[in-house]
Amino acid sequence: MDFRTLRAFVEVVRQGGFSQAARTVFATQSTVSKAVKQLEEEIGAPLLDRVGHRSLLTPMGEVVYRRGVKLLADRDDLIAELDEIRGLKRGLLKLGLPPVGSAMLFAPLFAEYRRRYPGIEVRLAEHGSDQLQESLRAGEIDFGGILLPAAPEFEALEVGSEPLVALLPAMHPLAARPSLAMGDLQETPFILFDRGFTLNRIILETARRAGFEPDVVARSSQIDFMVQLVATGLGVAFLPRLIAAQRRTPAVREVLLDEPGSEWTMAMVWRRGAFLSEAAQAWLALVREVHGRA
């Protein structure tokens, strides 16, 4: 059903005649008459009973008028809503962020995005990089903050890179050194993040390149808890240098991990070729504006 013919018919009923309806829809009386006739032919029944200069609704016409008013109102609402989304007055952005590094890298971006687009709803999910990649594949999120390297099916925009530091108890024999190799920690128990955190994979692969399988004594998703475990002398944990600097405590020392390929490199990642809504495109533009390299 053509909305143009439906609009003409509804206005004939509303305005009480063809000439009045023609002025409302900015058309000639002949055009309005043809539109109503076309609608009647499409439905296969007369909608107006023309009595002299008056036009009365037939039973079919009453149904079409009642439903038509609602259809036209819904259409107008749809167009208005789409215009709001195009104008970024409304919309939804689905972000997946990691527990490690989000405060440092993404909180300022998030705050600026909310300032620019207060009408956009931002839905956050917090997981490790492995789980975030699965969420991207499933279309559950638009973007994920993920440690590189990411799978080839994704596009990535780097947002930060930091060397790793080993967090050691202050009394550990290696705690006073400016840097160390992974092999130096072969006899020290490891405190790792929960499974699903890509940072674990970087640490374990680095240890295996050094020729050993570490003794993992604890796993946690809470950075502060891991730092406290180190402070008690339980073992060594690993964090990006800038994040470790935010959690300094006298009982723990930070020692640079001098191992090629062990850097913590975070990127904003999305599915290659995926449809990006207006809200998602605005987020990506902001990330590019702030970090400026793809």
Results as ranks from 00 to 15, higher is better:
L6E: 13
F9N: 10
E11L: 14
V12C: 07
V13S: 03
Q15T: 08
F18Y: 14
F18I: 09
A22I: 06
T24I: 05
F26K: 08
A35W: 02
L39Y: 03
I43H: 10
G44A: 05
P46E: 09
L47T: 02
G52E: 07
G52H: 04
R54W: 02
T58L: 11
M60K: 13
G61P: 01
E62K: 05
V64F: 09
V64R: 03
Y65K: 08
R66H: 08
R67D: 13
V69L: 10
V69Q: 12
L71C: 08
D76T: 09
D77G: 09
I79G: 07
A80E: 14
E81C: 10
L82F: 08
I85P: 00
G91M: 04
G91F: 03
L93N: 03
K94S: 05
G96R: 01
L97E: 02
L97G: 01
L97W: 03
F106N: 01
P108R: 11
L109W: 09
F110N: 04
A111Y: 09
A111G: 09
Y113M: 14
Y113N: 08
G119S: 14
R123G: 04
L124Q: 10
A125F: 15
L132I: 06
L132K: 00
F143Y: 15
G145S: 13
L148Y: 10
A150T: 11
A151V: 06
E153G: 09
E153V: 06
F154G: 04
E158S: 12
G160E: 07
S161F: 14
E162G: 03
P163N: 10
V165C: 11
P169N: 13
L174N: 01
A176G: 04
A176T: 10
A181E: 14
F190Y: 07
I191R: 04
I191L: 06
F193G: 13
D194H: 10
D194M: 15
D194G: 12
R195Q: 15
G196V: 13
T198E: 12
T198K: 15
I202H: 06
I203F: 14
I203G: 05
L204I: 14
P214N: 12
D215C: 12
D215Q: 15
V217A: 15
A218N: 03
R219P: 01
Q228F: 07
L229R: 13
V230M: 11
A231M: 09
T232K: 12
G233A: 10
L234Q: 09
G235A: 11
G235S: 13
G235L: 00
A237H: 01
A237Q: 00
L239R: 00
L242K: 12
I243K: 00
I243R: 01
A244C: 08
R248C: 01
V252C: 06
V252L: 09
R253G: 06
D258M: 15
E259L: 06
P260R: 05
G261H: 05
M266C: 01
G273F: 01
F275I: 02
F275A: 02
L276S: 02
S277G: 03
E278C: 05
E278L: 10
E278K: 03
Q281D: 05
L284I: 07
A285G: 02
A285M: 02
V287S: 05
V287E: 00
R288A: 02
E289W: 07
G292Y: 03
R293S: 10
